[in-house]
Amino acid sequence: MQFKLIINGKTLKGEITLEAVDAAEAEKKFKQYANDNGIDGEWTYDDATKTFTVTE
């Protein structure tokens, strides 16, 4: 399945997509990506659109 991450950071904004088996795997990958890029914020997930959002 394809999942999307919307980044609303203080210095980094944008979207990325990835393939994952389920939402838990996608969340783990997205949070690792955010951590690697210094993004720390409030996370939400919309199951209907398979979209994660992180807002700093």
Rank of each mutant, 00 (worst) to 15 (best):
M1V: 12
Q2M: 14
Q2R: 14
F3E: 00
F3N: 00
K4S: 08
I6G: 02
I6N: 06
I6S: 05
I6E: 07
I6D: 03
I7H: 03
I7R: 01
I7S: 02
N8I: 09
N8S: 11
N8V: 04
N8L: 14
N8E: 09
G9R: 06
K10D: 06
K10N: 13
T11S: 11
T11P: 05
K13Y: 04
K13F: 08
K13W: 14
K13P: 12
G14K: 08
G14A: 15
E15R: 07
E15G: 10
I16P: 01
I16E: 08
T17F: 14
T17P: 04
T17Y: 08
T17L: 14
T17R: 07
L18H: 10
L18R: 07
E19K: 06
A20P: 01
V21N: 11
V21I: 14
V21Q: 13
D22R: 03
D22S: 15
D22E: 13
D22I: 03
A23K: 04
A23P: 13
A23W: 12
A23N: 07
A24P: 04
A24H: 11
E25M: 08
A26G: 03
E27A: 15
K28I: 12
K28R: 09
K29Y: 11
K29L: 14
K29Q: 10
K29W: 10
K29G: 13
F30K: 00
F30V: 09
K31Y: 07
K31D: 02
K31A: 05
Q32K: 15
Q32I: 14
Q32T: 06
Q32A: 12
Y33S: 02
Y33D: 02
Y33P: 00
Y33M: 09
A34V: 09
N35H: 09
D36S: 10
N37Y: 12
N37E: 07
N37D: 03
G38K: 14
G38P: 02
G38Q: 13
I39Y: 06
I39A: 03
I39T: 03
I39F: 11
D40A: 15
D40K: 14
D40S: 11
E42D: 11
W43R: 00
W43P: 01
T44I: 07
T44M: 13
T44N: 12
Y45C: 02
Y45M: 02
D46F: 07
D46K: 06
D46Y: 10
D46C: 06
D47E: 06
D47L: 08
A48H: 05
A48C: 05
T49F: 15
T49Q: 05
K50D: 04
K50Y: 10
K50V: 05
K50H: 11
K50G: 11
T51E: 11
F52D: 00
F52L: 02
F52V: 01
T53F: 11
T53V: 10
T53C: 04
T53Y: 11
V54P: 00
T55I: 11
E56G: 05
E56A: 14
E56W: 09
E56P: 11
